[in-house]
Amino acid sequence: MVGVEEVRHLAHLARIGMKEEELRLYTEQINEILTYFNMLDELDIGNDIEPYRMSREYKAMRDDIPVAFSAGNALSNAKNVKGRFIKAPKMG
């Protein structure tokens, strides 16, 4: 079971601001859903089954040929800019 404090930590990891009543509601719903997910516990599959994953030959990967982006201004969707820089909050 997940408590409110654990959900608060999850919200921090995901950087989603939440009010107390939201935290309480999510705690309840997350617990309900996780309880459902817990049925995976009863699935007794060891190492005989590999987790599903797509694979490809390395030769199918892209050639090392540079093509600069020229179809428009890459910064056109940025609203906080200073000169050619994008403004972001300061760390620390």
Binding site: R62, D64, I65, A68, R84, I86
Partner: peptide
Amino acid sequence: RSKLFCTCPADYRGKEPNTNVC
């Protein structure tokens, strides 16, 4: 010659900020 996951030139040095992007 190009970046790891896109075709932007790998040589970013000395370029105006945010001009070597896609």
